[in-house]
Computed example of a mutant assay.
Amino acid sequence: MSGYITKPPGKINSSLIEFLPELESEYSKYPMKHKRWLQPNEKGPKGEPCFVAATTTEANEETTTVKKDYTFCKKGPNGKGYYSLMCRVSYINLHNRIGSLAPAGCGGGCPCFASQANRDEFDRYDDCKRVIFMRQACSVPNDDKASKQVMNNAVATAQMVYNGTQNEQLVMNAVF
């Protein structure tokens, strides 16, 4: 396999559920291949609402319950509440949250001093983070298209930096 995600779907799905339990949903299974993101005011594939407002207690609590096919979002076009995993806003909120879920114990920041178990856990976390990044950045909920888009953006950035510094390199080489 090549591309942004290199592990088989079963391992990716296990990693997603390990770090973000609300992703145990048919809507978020990797590889996701839906035609379009739904808007919060629409109905989901089973006729369910794509947005369920938070109750007063849920809106004020730090921890919320996991609802099947939804993720709790502190920010969104309809305010605090549960957004369907068919809505892009749910992945934008998950992307904001995933940074605080990084595993501890990686030897002071350098994984080379961590135990094998810690390195494996960090690898699974990295897979989860990549998928969430990909999904929140893509205009359609399709992991294959999102992977291509992310890779194309990375190549374009690298080429832009290389081409932008090429004159500096030529001048420096001419001087020395």
Score class of each variant (00 low, 15 high):
Met1Arg: 12
Thr6His: 10
Asn13Cys: 13
Asn13Leu: 05
Asn13Val: 12
Phe19Trp: 06
Pro21Thr: 05
Glu26Met: 04
Tyr27Gly: 04
Pro31Tyr: 11
Met32Arg: 12
Lys33Pro: 01
Arg36Gln: 09
Trp37Leu: 10
Trp37Phe: 08
Leu38Asn: 11
Pro40Thr: 08
Pro40Gly: 06
Asn41Arg: 10
Asn41Val: 14
Lys43Met: 02
Pro45Ser: 13
Lys46Met: 08
Gly47His: 02
Pro49Trp: 00
Pro49Arg: 07
Val52Thr: 09
Ala53Lys: 15
Ala53Trp: 06
Ala53Asn: 07
Ala59Pro: 03
Asn60Thr: 08
Glu61Cys: 05
Glu61Thr: 05
Thr65Trp: 09
Val66Tyr: 02
Tyr70Val: 12
Tyr70Ser: 09
Thr71Arg: 10
Cys73Phe: 08
Lys75Cys: 07
Gly76Ile: 03
Pro77Tyr: 04
Tyr82Arg: 03
Met86Ser: 13
Cys87Val: 01
Cys87Asn: 06
Arg88Gln: 15
Val89Asp: 02
Tyr91His: 05
Ile92Asp: 10
Asn93Thr: 07
Leu94Gln: 04
Asn96Thr: 12
Ile98Ser: 02
Ile98Thr: 07
Leu101Arg: 09
Ala102Trp: 08
Ala104Phe: 07
Ala104His: 10
Cys106Tyr: 09
Gly108Ile: 03
Cys112Gln: 09
Phe113Thr: 01
Ser115Leu: 06
Gln116Phe: 04
Asn118Ser: 15
Asn118Gln: 15
Arg119Cys: 08
Arg119Pro: 00
Asp120Asn: 11
Asp120Lys: 12
Glu121Thr: 06
Glu121Met: 11
Arg124Met: 13
Arg124Asp: 14
Tyr125Met: 08
Asp126Asn: 13
Cys128Phe: 01
Cys128Thr: 15
Phe133Ser: 12
Arg135Glu: 03
Arg135Leu: 14
Arg135Gln: 05
Ala137Tyr: 09
Ala137Asp: 14
Cys138Val: 04
Asn142Ala: 06
Asp143Glu: 04
Asp143Trp: 08
Lys145Phe: 05
Ser147Val: 04
Gln149His: 13
Val150His: 06
Met151Ala: 12
Met151Trp: 06
Met151Leu: 11
Asn152Phe: 03
Ala154Pro: 06
Val155Lys: 13
Ala158Met: 11
Ala158Arg: 08
Gln159Gly: 01
Val161Lys: 15
Tyr162Ala: 03
Asn163Glu: 13
Gly164Trp: 14
Thr165Asn: 13
Gln169Phe: 15
Val171Thr: 14
Val171Ile: 15
Ala174His: 15
Ala174Gly: 10
Val175Met: 13
